[in-house]
Write a protein that binds this DNA or RNA. Structure first.
Length: 718
DNA sequence: ACGGTTATAACT
DNA sequence: TAGTTATAA
């Protein structure tokens, strides 16, 4: 039946877009604002602040986004202006992000969703639709199940008489007429492979989902339902607000014949303009007259093929199962006269940004069980027009604002052309941006405690950290805090484990290496030795989920054994911290295009810019040797790397054989309490590793943190 | 002085 | 490959 499905109609895809989302969030906070012309603006001093969201009542007065609030007031004297919260001296979007999570959690009860932005999500409803069709049996789909649904292209007004008649009806009557017409044309529900029938069922699901979103959050939204993401997005915009639109493929030709190219997602910018220019066409439908070769010739093979299909309403970009952002960042502009022209200013604002980033990262770690490993700093120089004229990155080893800001300063320091002794920063900066990315699974709370303990152990015995204990905040960073006075149950237990571990490591070096070199077989063996330990699997999942609430279905996996599947020891973990504990400089590595903040032993943002030679040659490289396996590992990969060794060591330290690595990390709906994920075969989770994993495309993914599972199963047993 | 974010493809 | 920039929303 897949085979009989028409080309380009294989999926049912929807896009749900919250209506003027920030406005709705403010209206929920302050109900006075409801049903009024209303905007959300950030900042106040410059022309009343910039508008970033506009209610539909305000739009009727011509108020738009990117308008100054003072100007909008001229258009609409009754305009209500809600202000974005400010913290750390900058706009703070926390309210909207939190509201977004509420919405996404509701939507995720209905389908696998892809968070496209703070207020938009795509979903692949193909599997749900088929399931629903099986349960419906032969029942006609009634219009009352689609009370807010428009069907694009319906009613089909063939004669001018029809058009005149429709013009007499009010909006909803026309909608209902079109809907009825379309529904009447559908085959019986037993014919499950009818593309339009599937769209109809998809639309019912989306009606239910939108009703649930409104019921649970109070927020209204619009939606588009079609066969791919581009059409769903387009359809969504056709009947806003608070309505949804089905776009059957059969209606595309008409629609596209007069649809400006710029209305298509991804064609609103330069590419769209260049298409209009080079091909001399205005509407997307006109592209259908070109061959694939012609399009590829002008826009590249990939874009050419995409356009060739797209102008026929066909597109294949998958809905990615991802509810969480891949990066967390914050930025602030310093336009015009406010540009940052002294070192103190730059440091001050880096600190403010770092404070927000730290808060958000910690919350993200606690909520989502993951940690970012890469810190990116971007700036714009006065006079530049590009959003970011410069950006550099370094390892993000700890979630601590003081370290984040000192590292950030270190890697942008070279941009300052002012003399070393001066207070000035030039050219002035008009934008600062901090962002954290490259997430991997967080150690569980218990693992973090253990790791802290082990680290202290090593430092106190091997590395005399003394005198120049810098600022209070950095002190924490430098592990000055002693081992907990009163070791908790976990710590005290693991003291014994660690002792055994240390003994064991020395004795079994060779055996360990064997394991490390063939992580894949090792796991395979484990699976064989414990084929279906579903009981221990589920209980270990429960233990894990008690430490943090995983909300997402996506799961990272090992990508290649060369970077992650081998180990380092505790000491090399220390090396990561050591090389990052207090930075003054950034060292550039031409071969890798990366910067490493380096330390000369003092803390804080002092101004000595000389880079000691020894620092350069010593350990400023982003790679560092793992002293367990000798392999060069990226600094920001080292914690995971260490975790992996630790897991193996810990496991080896048990005297009695353990059930060992279960496959619980492979459970798809990992830890999610709300999410029910029908795993469709089109899901990239199942098929797509974006990085070519060297060799066989094995389906079973390696659990990222083998130690997590082992520890959890241990707790369960004791 | 069209802000603050986020994502992805292209480029190097 | 990985990092940076460009583009879009």
């Amino acid at each position: 039946m897949e085979q009989s499905m028409d080309y380009g109609k294989e999926r049912v895809v929807a896009l749900v877009d919250m209506d003027c989302f920030y406005v709705q969030v403010e209206q929920r906070i302050n109900p006075e604002l409801k049903n009024k012309p209303c905007v959300v603006a950030q900042y106040k001093t410059w022309k009343g602040g910039g508008i970033i969201a506009v209610s539909y009542e305000a739009r009727a007065h011509g108020v738009t986004r990117n308008m100054w609030a003072d100007d909008a007031k001229k258009l609409c004297p009754d305009l209500q202006v809600a202000r974005v919260r400010e913290s750390h001296g900058k706009a703070d979007l926390t309210h909207y992000r939190d509201a977004s999570v509420e919405v996404i959690e509701v939507m995720s009860r209905f389908a696998v969703i892809e968070r496209a932005s703070i207020d938009e999500a795509y979903m692949d409803l193909s599997a749900s639709v088929k399931q629903r069709l099986r349960s419906i049996e032969d029942v006609q789909i009634e219009p009352h199940l689609l009370t807010s649904t428009f069907v694009q292209g319906y009613p089909q007004a063939t004669t001018s008489q029809d058009k005149t008649e429709d013009a007499m009806l009010d909006n909803d009557a026309v909608r209902l007429k079109g809907l009825g017409q379309w529904l009447a044309s559908l085959p019986p529900t037993t014919q499950m492979d009818s593309a339009d029938l599937q769209l109809a069922v998809g639309a019912i699901i989306v009606e239910e989902m939108r009703a649930a979103v409104e019921q649970c959050t109070g927020f209204q939204c619009s939606a588009g339902i079609s066969h791919n993401k581009v059409l769903a997005k387009l359809a969504c915009g056709l009947n806003k607000p608070n309505r949804q639109t089905v776009l059957p493929l059969s209606s595309v030709t008409q629609l596209f014949s007069s649809l400006p190219i710029s209305k298509i997602r991804n064609l609103g910018g330069k590419l769209g303009a260049s298409i209009t220019e080079t091909m001399e066409v205005e509407n997307i439908g006109e592209l259908a007259k070109f061959t694939q070769g012609q399009l590829a010739q002008h826009f590249g093979v990939k874009t050419g093929q995409w356009l060739y299909d797209l102008c026929r309403g066909i597109e294949f970009e998958p809905v990615k199962p991802r509810q969480l952002p891949k990066s967390i960042g914050c930025s602030k502009n310093f336009p015009g006269k406010t540009s940052l022209a002294t070192k103190d200013q730059v440091q001050h604002w880096l600190e403010q940004l770092a404070l927000e980033l730290e808060e958000r990262l910690i919350k993200d770690r606690d909520m989502n069980g993951r940690v970012a490993k890469l810190l990116t700093v971007g700036v714009r120089l006065a006079g530049e027009t590009k959003p970011s004229s410069y950006s550099r990155c370094c390892a993000l080893a700890r979630y601590e604002a003081s370290k984040i800001s000192t590292d950030s300063y270190a890697i942008i320091k070279s941009l300052n052309c002012a003399g070393n002794h001066q207070q000035a920063w030039s050219p002035p900066l008009t934008l600062l941006h901090l962002s954290a990315s490259k997430f991997s699974d967080a150690p569980t709370a218990s693992c973090r405690g253990i790791t802290r303990f082990l680290r202290n152990d090593v430092i106190s015995t091997q590395i005399p950290l003394s005198s120049h204990s810098p600022s209070a905040s950095l002190a924490i960073n430098n592990q000055q805090l002693p081992t907990p006075k009163r070791p908790g149950m976990i710590e005290s237990f693991f003291q014994n484990v660690v002792k055994r571990r240390q003994d064991h490591v020395e004795l079994s070096e060779g055996a360990e290496n064997e394991l490390e070199d063939s992580g894949e077989e090792e796991r395979t063996d484990d699976k064989k030795s414990l084929p279906e330990n579903s009981a221990s699997t589920s209980s270990s999942m429960q233990v894990t989920s008690s430490f943090f609430q995983k909300k997402s279905a996506e799961k990272k996996h090992f990508q290649s054994s060369t970077t992650t599947a081998d180990g380092s020891g505790v000491a090399s973990y220390q090396m990561v911290e050591d090389s990052c504990q207090s930075n003054k400089h950034a060292v550039f590595h031409p071969d890798k295009n990366t910067y490493t903040p380096t330390s000369d032993g003092l803390c804080g943002m002092t101004e000595d810019s000389s880079v000691p030679e020894s620092t350069l040659s010593l350990s400023s490289d982003d790679h560092m040797p793992c002293d367990r396996c000798g392999q060069e590992v990226l600094a920001w990969e080292m914690p995971e790397h260490t975790d992996y060794h630790f897991a193996q060591d810990l496991q080896n330290s048990f005297s009695s054989p353990l059930p060992s690595l279960s496959s619980s990390n492979q459970i798809p709906a990992n830890l999610s309490k709300t999410n029910v994920y029908p795993r469709s075969k089109t899901s990239p989770l199942a098929t797509g590793s974006r990085k070519p994993s060297s060799g066989s495309g094995r389906q079973a993914k390696k659990p990222k943190l083998a130690g997590t599972v082992t520890l959890d199963s241990f707790f369960k047993r004791s």
